[in-house]
Design a protein around this nucleic acid. Structure first.
Length: 594
RNA sequence: GGGGGUGUAGCUCAGUUGGUUAGAGCACCUGCCUGUCACGCAGGGGGCCGCGAGUUCGAGUCUCGUCACUCCCGCCA
């Protein structure tokens, strides 16, 4: 019966006079008494059906019974609309279908929310009835574009000699990194698999096996608290290559991202992606994932204030802190109230306050201006090339607090004064990351990227003389790709020599015994002619979210979890039967909820 | 673990200083209507004001607690 079925949204004036069959859902019904218009929707779009009592009484009677979201099948003839009734806002607005028969395939209750409404429906109810939410245009676009992006990715990578290989989902729990989701083993009571945070080790093993270009569009799992761009399970485009260097990988990924942007948005990105060092990114933007769509760059002014009379600055410098300034031009857009709000807001990032002042008519006024010496004023004007009517926000604290507070304030102000061009897609590579960072609390080093990242060639010597003070000088062959201030991917050249890998474990406090227990297969594999290799993983969900300008990652995932990790539709997670637990050698002790 | 926002009809929201019977738009139901396209017109039904305590003569409104969703800090190599 459905063999001849056509798609609503694909019909054009070239189909006029054809007898056709359509199937879909009633998007809307407009009853004019003798004539009823039905907007019929399927995955391709919407077309107008006309049931005319004077032409076909039986069909008009069925049309009278139709309600929103009924699933129906329509036979009819495509007809050109009269010139006055053309709807230029509709893709199929030039035509309509005169129904010769309508069959109700399945009735619908009144939906809990209107599918075609312009209201912003609360997310919990959308997620509970996700099957209805997914009928809405925005979600259909999301999922279809996501599919197209995956197709583009496969085409591009296959063209570049990549081989798609699947890696296991049931895996081994490893130290470091995010909290693992665990899966109890029935055959090995008391033991657990872990779901992969990424297929890191397996893809390196594949390089050693000789598959010199691997990719995998793969689910990854991290049991950490959620954000609007973080889900417990998410999708990575995972890649690894042998016989390459950092520049080659960056070139290949640039090509892929340009193809993806073209597919999803239709935009062409002509130029090469700019490259920033981690140090420059932190200095100018206060973040390792800078949003370069607007200016408002930070400047370090510690030197200018080394003899400051302003106690707060003086104390900061004396205790080894730094002073940075965020100059905001068009200062007239910054009201007194905003100054107060920002001062309160930066406390989120542990800043004690937000010293500020205005530069207007050649003078500094308000805020801390009375503490500024003539010399300091002169140097500020010079260093910041101050224009008239600029508000200066100062950060003075430990370097990290200053970067956190001013880096985030920079973005907040840009949004508040509306200087971000939403159409821009600013990619930027961030490179030259430190290999390690030192935690004073744990009194040990941690891998900044992950423990398999190769040190930069020029940093190899320093590895043996590492101290908490010089740890930032030891660089990694790691690179992140950032889009509009969001980290959408990252990777590194890996260690391919066992003695360096052992040294690395040693540095981050994984002793030989532990390294052997957790990673012996990698350490062993490295002994059998491991090629130089490296790779990168892209966050598919995040890329889609940005390219489609969606407010959250959940808008590009068919069945996402809420912030507390639940599925509103299936009600997962849930308790299980005692028998299931017993089979797994498990017993619930105390229930811990936050 | 911590901070902010939201929660009133099926949906989106308004609800003044604590004061009569809690409103609007959309949706829904009935009737009318032959060119609409967010159709129109007339009529109608629909409320645990998230939940629980408290203050008060009186609570949607004030206080405390609690739950859900959401944004953020911590966390996420």
């Amino acid at each position: 019966m459905f063999a001849e079925r056509l798609y609503c949204g694909k019909l054009t004036r070239s189909d006029v006079d054809k007898e056709i069959l359509l199937a879909g859902w009633v998007d809307r019904r407009r009853d004019h008494g003798g004539i009823i218009f039905i907007m019929l929707r399927d995955v391709s779009g919407i077309v107008q059906i006309v049931a005319d009592e004077s032409l076909n009484r039986e069909t008009a009677l069925i049309a009278d019974k139709l309600r929103n979201e009924f699933c129906i099948c329509v036979k009819g003839t495509v007809r050109l609309r009269g010139s006055e009734s053309v709807n230029p806002d509709m893709k199929t607005g030039e035509i309509e279908i005169v129904a010769s028969s309508i069959e109700i395939l399945s009735e619908s209750e009144v939906p809990p929310f209107q599918i075609e409404t312009r209201d912003h429906i609360h997310e919990d109810i959308r997620l509970k009835y996700r099957y209805l939410d997914l009928r809405r245009e925005n979600m259909q676009i999301s999922l279809i574009k996501r599919h197209e992006m995956m197709q583009t990715t496969r085409n591009y990578l296959v063209k570049n000699n990549f081989i798609e290989i699947e890696t296991p989902v049931l895996n081994k729990s490893t130290p470091e990194g995010a909290r693992d989701f665990l899966v109890p083993s029935r055959l090995h009571g008391g033991q657990f698999y872990a779901l992969p945070q990424s297929p890191q080790l397996f893809k390196q093993i594949l390089m050693i096996s000789g598959f010199d270009r691997y990719f995998n569009i793969v689910k990854c799992f991290r049991d950490e608290d959620l954000r609007n761009d973080r889900q417990p399970e998410f999708t990575q485009i995972d890649m690894e290559l042998s016989f390459i260097d950092q520049q080659m990988i960056m070139k290949i990924i640039e090509g892929l991202l340009k193809d993806i942007v073209k597919t999803v948005t239709g935009k062409e990105i002509g130029s090469d992606f700019p490259v920033l060092s981690y140090e420059d990114a932190m200095e100018r933007y206060g973040k390792d994932a800078p949003d370069t769509r607007f200016g408002l760059e930070l400047l370090t002014v510690t030197d200018i204030f080394k003899d400051s009379e302003f106690k707060v600055f003086k104390n900061t410098i004396d205790t080894g802190g730094v002073i940075k300034v965020l100059p905001v031009e068009s200062g007239d857009k910054i009201t007194r109230k905003m100054l107060d709000d920002y001062t309160e807001w930066v406390k989120i990032f542990k800043a004690g306050g937000l010293p500020n002042c205005r530069f207007r008519g050649g003078n500094f006024e308000g805020g801390i201006s009375k503490f500024l010496s003539e010399d300091e004023k002169k140097k500020l004007i010079e260093k910041c090339t101050l224009k008239d009517d600029t508000v200066l926000f100062f950060g003075c604290d430990r370097k990290q607090v200053v970067n956190d507070s001013l880096g985030n304030l920079r973005i907040k102000i840009a949004k508040d004064i509306d200087i971000i061009d939403q159409e821009k897609l600013n990619f930027v590579w961030v490179t030259q990351f430190p290999l390690l960072e030192y935690s004073y609390e744990d009194k040990r080093y941690f891998a900044k990227h992950h423990p398999f990242t190769a040190p930069a060639a020029e940093s190899m010597d320093k590895l043996n003389n590492i101290t908490p003070e010089n740890v930032d000088d030891i660089l990694a062959q790691a690179y992140d790709i950032v889009l509009n201030g969001v980290e959408i991917g990252g990777g590194s050249i890996r260690i391919n020599r066992p003695e360096i890998q052992s040294r690395m474990f040693d540095l981050i406090g994984i002793n030989e015994e532990e390294a052997n227990e957790k990673f012996s297969f990698l350490l062993d594999a490295l002994k059998f002619g491991a090629p130089p290799h490296g790779g990168l993983a892209l966050g598919l969900d995040r890329i889609m979210m940005i390219l489609l300008q969606r407010e959250s990652i959940r808008e590009v995932i068919a069945f996402p979890k809420t912030q507390r990790g639940q599925c509103m539709m299936s009600q997962a997670p849930s308790a299980v039967a005692k028998d299931q637990l017993k089979e797994l050698s498990l017993r619930i002790s105390e229930i811990k909820n936050d």
